[in-house]
């Protein structure tokens, strides 16, 4: 049997290289028109700029859709994130199709909200995401499945099993975390 060909397989269009690491533009994206309600979130964002930008976008729409606004500062963020799944489910239950969200702030918080939004049934086109703070990543350990906050960009010790992990440029939106791969730590000289 000869190799299969299919119109889609014969395409020659060049495609830009990409990884699964999220890339954030320098300024927050504009809110698209069409939604009937918005929830805007600013989570540990150092500036009021994303919210201000989005409020201006909304004011320019006719009719102007109603928006609820959530602002959490850096210090309160960890506590808020712990309650996120319940909070988001309740927020979704108050709304109907036509509702969209826009989230700005620390990358780990933005990814966590995106994951909660997906769980609640929102599609990627119903979320505007913008990370303007990249102070640390959440790292997933494949050995034990724990997710650990990493301060640096390079390595972290797993908070679940203590193993040393290299942080890979491979991000799971669902978990809001990057993949860590095991570093086999050198034994003492003389060992096999």
């Amino acid at each position: 049997m000869p190799p299969l060909t299919h119109p889609a397989a014969a395409d020659d269009i060049a495609w830009p290289p990409r990884t699964s690491r999220p890339e954030w533009p320098p300024s927050p994206p504009a809110l698209p028109p069409g939604a009937t309600a918005w929830t805007l979130l600013s989570l540990g964002s150092p500036s009021g700029e994303p919210l201000a930008r989005w409020r201006r976008d909304l004011a320019a729409m006719t009719p102007q859709p109603p928006a609820s606004v959530v602002e959490i500062d850096r210090e309160a963020l960890d506590g808020w994130l712990a309650l996120l799944p319940l909070w988001f489910a309740a927020e979704a239950a108050r709304n109907v199709v036509g509702w969209r969200i826009a989230v700005a702030g620390e990358e780990r918080a933005v990814l966590a909200v995106a994951a909660a939004a997906r769980s609640a049934g929102l599609l990627p086109t119903e979320m505007v995401l913008h990370a303007d703070v990249a102070n640390g990543k959440r790292v997933y350990c494949p050995s034990c499945s724990a997710v650990t906050d990493a301060a640096g960009d390079d390595r972290v010790r797993c908070g679940g099993c203590g193993r040393l992990l290299v942080i890979q440029p491979h991000c799971s939106r669902r978990r809001g975390a990057y993949l860590g791969t095991l570093v086999h730590e050198a034994k003492e000289p003389g060992d096999a």
Binding site: S20, Y140, P142, S145, P169, H170, R174, L179
Partner: peptide
């Protein structure tokens, strides 16, 4: 890690 990669798109899976 299939466990980690669950819920990813084909594109994201092949990122690395």
């Amino acid at each position: 890690s299939p466990v980690f990669d669950l819920r990813m798109t084909f594109d994201e899976l092949h990122g690395p």
